[in-house]
C-alpha cells in the first residue's frame, strides 16, 4: 500500500545558505499516527511548515512532499491553497496568538467552512456548532460568540482543532499542540486528539519535544536532530530501546524524569 503522505529528501535552506532541514524522509499511511520528536532547533516544526509550504520568508524547500502521489512543493499556488485546510490542516503550539483576537470564535470556524465547503449562513453556523461539540466545547453558543482571549488555553486549543478539522482534512499536523497548556489541560487535549483521530480517521503527525506525550498518541516515530532524521521506527521499538544511540538517550532521559511506559502506542 502506498503512503498517504510521504516526505522524501526534504531539504530547507535559508537565504544565507544554511541548511535547516537536511534530507528528511518519512511516510504516513492513511489513518496513521506519526510522532516527530527532537529537541528545539532540531527542525521538527520546520518540517511541518515545509509540508504546508508555509516556510518563513526567504527559506527554500527542495525534495518532495507527496500527498496521494501529488508533490505539494511543485503545486501551483491556487491548488496548494486548496490542499491546505482541505487535505492537510495544522494546529499550532500557541493557541492564543494562532487565533485572530478581533474575530469571534464562531466566525473563525465558519471561515474555512465557507472557503472549502461553500457553507454559509445558517448551514455554516450549524456546522460550526457541530464541530464545537465534536471538540467537547460545551456551552457551544457562548463560546462561538466569544473572542479567543475570553477563553481558557484549553478551550482555545479546542477551537484551533475545530478549525483544523472543519474541512475534513486527511492529514492533521499538530505542532506541539499541548506544550503551552497546563498539565491537566494537556492530558484532556491529548485524550481529545486521540479520540478525534479514532472517530474521524484523520492521519496524524504529532510534533513534540516531549517523548511521553508522543508515546500516548503516536504509533510510529521519527526522531530528529540538527535537521536530520536520526531514526524512523515504531513507538514500541523506540521505547524498547531504539537502534540509534540518540533515541536511547532521549528515552532514557524521559524515563528518568517521568514514568515513561516501557511499551507505547495509543491505548
Amino acid at each position: 500500500m502506498t503512503a498517504l503522505l510521504s516526505v522524501e529528501d526534504l531539504t530547507v535552506t535559508t537565504s544565507t545558505g544554511r541548511r535547516i532541514l537536511d534530507g528528511v524522509s518519512w511516510s504516513l499511511d492513511a489513518g496513521g499516527r506519526l510522532g516527530v520528536v527532537g529537541e528545539s532547533g532540531s527542525g521538527k516544526s520546520m518540517t511541518a511548515l515545509a509540508v504546508l509550504g508555509l516556510l518563513p520568508e526567504g527559506m527554500r524547500a527542495t525534495g518532495r512532499v507527496l500527498l496521494d502521489g501529488e508533490d505539494l512543493l511543485t503545486l501551483p499556488p491556487r491548488r496548494l491553497a486548496k490542499a491546505r485546510g482541505g487535505q492537510v490542516a495544522m494546529v499550532f503550539q500557541e493557541p492564543l496568538t494562532a487565533l485572530d483576537p478581533l474575530m469571534t470564535v464562531g466566525r473563525q470556524i465558519t471561515g474555512p467552512l465557507r472557503l472549502h465547503r461553500g457553507l454559509r449562513g445558517g448551514a455554516a453556523r450549524d456546522e460550526a456548532a457541530r464541530l464545537a461539540r465534536l471538540v467537547h466545547l460545551d456551552d457551544t453558543e457562548r463560546i462561538l460568540g466569544s473572542y479567543p482571549w475570553q477563553l481558557s488555553g484549553g478551550q482555545r486549543q479546542r477551537v484551533a482543532l475545530a478549525m483544523a478539522l472543519a474541512c475534513e482534512p486527511r492529514v492533521l499536523l499538530a505542532d506541539e499542540p499541548t506544550t503551552a497548556l497546563d498539565v491537566t489541560v494537556q492530558a484532556e487535549v491529548l485524550d481529545l486528539l486521540d479520540d478525534l483521530v479514532d472517530r474521524t480517521g484523520v492521519a496524524l503527525v504529532f510534533v513534540t519535544h516531549d517523548l511521553p506525550v508522543v508515546a500516548r498518541v503516536a504509533r510510529d516515530l521519527v526522531v530528529m536532530r540538527d535537521g536530520r532524521v536520526v531514526e524512523h521506527t515504531s513507538v514500541g521499538a523506540a521505547l524498547a530501546g531504539g537502534e540509534a544511540a540518540y533515541t536511547r538517550e532521549l528515552v532514557g532521559a524521559a524515563r528518568a524524569v517521568t514514568g515513561l511506559p516501557t511499551s507505547g502506542g495509543p491505548r
Binding site: L52, L54, P77, R78, A81, K82, A83, R84, G85, G86, A89, M90, F92, E94, T97, A98, L99, D100, P101, L102, M103, G111, P112, L115, H116, A160, M163, A164, A166, C167
Partner: peptide, 23 residues
C-alpha cells in the same frame, strides 16, 4: 501567528491579509 493559521487553512496571502490583517 493568526495570519499563518489562516494560510494553513487555505487562505491565499492577500485573502488572509484582508480577512485578518486589515482589521
Amino acid at each position: 501567528d493568526y495570519l499563518r493559521t489562516a494560510r494553513s487553512l487555505g487562505y491565499g496571502r492577500w485573502h488572509a491579509l484582508a480577512r485578518h490583517g486589515l482589521r
